[in-house]
Amino acid sequence: MMPGQKNSGNLKPKHQRLVLVGLAALAIGGAAALGFSALQDTMTYFYSPSDVQTKGVEPGQSIRLGGLVAANSVQRLPDGLTLAFTVTDTANAVDVRYKGLVPDLFKEGSGVIAEGRFGPDRVFVADSLLAKHDENYMPPEVADSIKRAGEWKPAATPAQPALPATPASRSN
C-alpha cells in the first residue's frame, strides 16, 4: 500500500492523496469510536434485569425493560385485566404488571420489551409491550423435532427467576 516510503519527502501526488485519505479515515473512525463509546448507555434501547440492578434505576423513572418472559410466570390477576409475568435474563428477574393488548409473539420463554416504570414496591408497571424474537428461523416440523430431541436452546426455556445465575445464555 505504501510504495513511496523510501523517498517520503517527495511522494507522488496519488500516494500523497492515499496517505491523506488513510489519515482522514483513521481520524473519522477514531472520532466515531470515541463518540459512540461515550454514548454507550443512551444508545441502548432497553435495560436488562441485571442492568436495572447495577445501574440504579429510580422508581418512577421511565425506562424500557427487556428480557425473556419466564416460564410458568404469566397469569391474569383477579381483576381480569392486569397481566402479571416475570422478565428474566437468567441471572436476575423483575416482576411486571401490564394492562392492554399483547403482541402475537408474546409468550413464555420468548423475548419481550416493556416500556414503563418501577413502582415503589419494585414491581415494574408497563404501559406498552413489544415482542422481541431471536435470530432463529425454521419450519414448525424442524422446531418440533428439536424439541422432541430435547435440544431446544436454553435461550428459549430460561431458568426460573428464583434460581441463581446459570451458565448464562445470550439474554437479549
Binding site: Y45, F46, Y47, L130, E135, Y137, R170
Partner: peptide, 17 residues
C-alpha cells in the same frame, strides 16, 4: 447495543441460524 432488532442470522460466528 441492546436492540429490538434481533442479532445477525447469516454472517455470524457459528454459522447461519
Amino acid at each position: 447495543w441492546n436492540t429490538l432488532h434481533q442479532p445477525a442470522s447469516i454472517l455470524r460466528r457459528g454459522g447461519p441460524t
